[in-house]
């Protein structure tokens, strides 16, 4: 079978999917950076050759809480934006 040139639709979708992937990657990186810094500060009080099992338990719980905090904050932020938008519209009419 001869490989044909990608169609416009295929090229368009390839661009979209790579942009989506980059956004997802940047999102994960920001999450990791934030959690890493905070959980390191909180859990690793005495750096040793290796992480103790207590350290590891703390890190796991800390990361779970960080994710939960992200969810709570995202929720609060989106709710606030929606509210502001509604208020702005109410002022127009």
């Amino acid at each position: 079978m001869i490989m044909s040139e990608p169609t416009t639709k295929e090229r368009k979708e390839a661009i979209m999917s790579s942009v989506r992937q980059e956004l997802a990657l940047s999102n994960v990186q920001q999450l990791i950076n934030g959690a890493n810094e905070r959980c390191f500060k909180t859990c690793i009080t005495k750096p040793a050759i290796s992480l103790s099992s207590a350290d590891q338990t703390c890190l796991s719980q800390c990361f779970d809480r960080y994710l939960e905090a992200f969810t709570i904050v995202r929720h609060a932020y989106l709710a606030r934006i929606a509210q502001e938008r509604q208020d702005a519209q109410a002022r127009v009419f």
Binding site: S26, Q30, R38, F70, R74, L78, I81
Partner: peptide, 10 residues
């Protein structure tokens, strides 16, 4: 929006 939410989370 994501960037702001990350900032606020921190």
């Amino acid at each position: 929006v994501y960037s702001t939410v990350h900032n606020l989370t921190q």
